[in-house]
Amino acid sequence: MYDIYLKDITLIKNERKILADIETHFPEGKTTVVIGPSGCGKSTLLKVAAALIPVDHGNIFVNDKNLRKMNTSGLLDFRKNSSFVFQDAALWANQSVYQNMSLPLRLHFPEMDKDTHDNKIMEMLDLVGYTDSIHLRPAALSNGERKMVSLARALITSPGLIYMDNPLVLVDPSVAKKMRKLILDLHNTEATIIANFSSPELIKQMADYMIVIKDGKLVEAGTAESVQNSTNPVTSAIINSLLNQNQDYI
């Protein structure tokens, strides 16, 4: 169970502020969806919250502990119990599907016996609907298969904190359907989820909390209901453009 708090986060790249003085809270056990126009810094905010990108200013608190000042074992424990689903799968290209799945297990559960280890991999791949050979390299997989394996890799350590950066983007509908069901199932667990979805339906179904950002600045944050009913014109415009679409194309 993780409670994440971002304090005065500022990230500058090429003399441009990508994120500016963001202070927000991701409550534990809930799903928080970050929304905003394209290129506003949603993915970057997720990576900052997951401590994948160093920030120029500000701190990240995990259960009131400053992530920047955490020791190696504390950080490793945080990594063991958190995972990140990347927009472009980010599978390790020089390793097979099996090795991609195996690496987090071997790192965090070195004592796990071979059978349990292999069973766990097969179970997770089955769960996401992957049916092809486990000895193929990512280059030999379709885009949808890569996304499946990426999601399976993220969930293999049964993390209590999951970051999802557009996991269903560019996935064909048949695969997306199965993966969406899996993500919705996660919503019903105690895991803290911090997500960036482009699917209005998924946002509506998943979001307990919402954070609205524009041009790297925080516009509004609160429960999904309060944000959706916000009178803030910027928030309303974003909500209208995102959630009131006629069709869910992914």
């Binding site: 401590a51 063991k80 995972s83 990140f84 990347f86 390790w92 790192l107």
Partner: peptide, 20 residues
Amino acid sequence: TEIGSNVVNHEIEAYIATGI
């Protein structure tokens, strides 16, 4: 080349996220 590709394909971030 390999490490450069890893960076571009976010594989480095995937390693960090996994705890490696």
